[in-house]
């Protein structure tokens, strides 16, 4: 039985004049049908890069330099552009942070939806238009039948993101890659959009890779979570375990540094320093200069993901040898 999506030892490189930067290194995880995998990390951790590699939209000169990406057991990381374009949309939908960059400002939202539907599903334009109206109703656009011929700029930010969700889901893909889908939205709108994404994913049985820096969003939405640091997966496991009993010192530090809403603390638990640049990733474990539990081994050898309770953590604390 294959996973819906399997990423194996993915490595992404950026050749530059001053040498090759390794943006992702040895990233492996799987997403099962209908599952929501949260991917968290701070800026530069490689979480968006992972999403971009999966949908085949890495910004040049970035390129996949190793590993495999399999969708239902079939490799998709080495497909020609045209073939990948058909998979994108039909099998993998994408939602980005800024709805204005996803929507074409020159076309009505109806035209964009109909084009997506007729490209991927065996429907004629009239049927596709009806389907588009159904989708707009489903994502909560009021008076969908009247608004289908409106342009993106005629919608507010929250409404635009709903249109983007309709666009990503209308060809009924099995997997959605959502990159910071609510980051540009105000908190009251964010709650509406998350509730919508969750409901649709459940009703349609769509699996989702939810990339965000907001741990609260992950805690409420994801089944499992992968914590990324400096281009690698630091910890992966069931969301409750990672949030409540994180095993990797970075994940527990990250959780502790989130200011709580329900009480005031005198001093927040900050992590000293900041994430290394890609050009200066430390030897051994990339987190070792900031880690309060650093050992000699961490400065020399890079740990792989090791079983740690119910999660797996890339940390020598869990080596039993």
């Amino acid at each position: 039985m294959n996973s819906l999506l399997e990423v194996r030892n993915l490595r992404v490189e950026f050749p530059t004049r001053r040498g090759t930067l390794v943006a992702l290194d040895d990233v492996s995880f799987a997403i099962e049908p209908g599952e929501v995998l949260g991917v968290v990390g701070e800026s530069g951790a490689g979480k968006s890069m992972t999403g971009a590699a999966i949908i085949g939209l890495l910004e040049p000169p970035g390129r996949i330099a190793g590993g495999q990406i399999l969708l239902e057991g079939r490799r998709i990381d080495n497909l020609p552009y045209e073939e990948m374009r058909r998979i994108r949309g039909r099998h993998i939908g994408a939602i980005f942070q800024d709805p204005l960059t996803t929507l074409n400002p020159l076309y009505t939202i109806g035209r964009q939806l109909v084009e997506t539907i007729t490209t991927h599903l065996p429907l004629n334009p009239a049927q596709a238009r009806e389907r588009a109206i159904e989708w707009l109703e489903l994502v909560g656009i009021p008076a969908a039948r009247d608004r289908i011929d409106a342009y993106p700029h005629q919608f507010s930010g929250g409404m635009r993101q709903r249109v983007v969700i309709a666009l990503a889901l209308c060809a009924e893909p099995k997997l959605i890659v959502a990159d910071e889908p609510t980051t540009a939205l105000d908190v009251s709108i964010q709650a509406q959009v998350i509730a919508l994404l969750k409901r649709l994913a459940r009703e349609k049985g769509t699996a989702m890779m939810l990339v965000t820096h907001d741990m609260g969003v992950i805690a409420e939405t994801a089944d499992r979570v992968a914590v990324m640091y400096a281009g690698r997966v630091a910890e992966i496991g069931p969301v409750r375990e990672v949030v409540k009993h994180a095993k990797h010192p970075y994940s527990s530090g990250l959780m502790a540094s989130i200011p709580p809403l329900d009480r005031r603390v005198d001093k927040l638990a900050a992590i000293d320093g900041s994430m290394p640049r890609l050009s200066a990733i430390p030897q051994g474990c990339a987190y070792n200069p900031r880690c309060p539990q650093v050992m000699e081994r961490c400065r020399q050898q890079r740990p792989d993901l090791l079983p740690a309770g119910e999660t797996r953590a890339a940390c020598w604390l869990y080596a039993h040898d």
Binding site: Q190, A191, G216, A219, I258
Partner: peptide, 24 residues
């Protein structure tokens, strides 16, 4: 109260949040 209700939290109590409708 609506603003506080809307913030996703780490408690994972499984509470059903009631997001405020509409926009500013």
């Amino acid at each position: 109260r609506a603003l506080m209700e809307a913030i996703p939290d780490l408690e994972m109590s499984g509470r059903q949040r009631m997001p405020v409708g509409g926009e500013v």
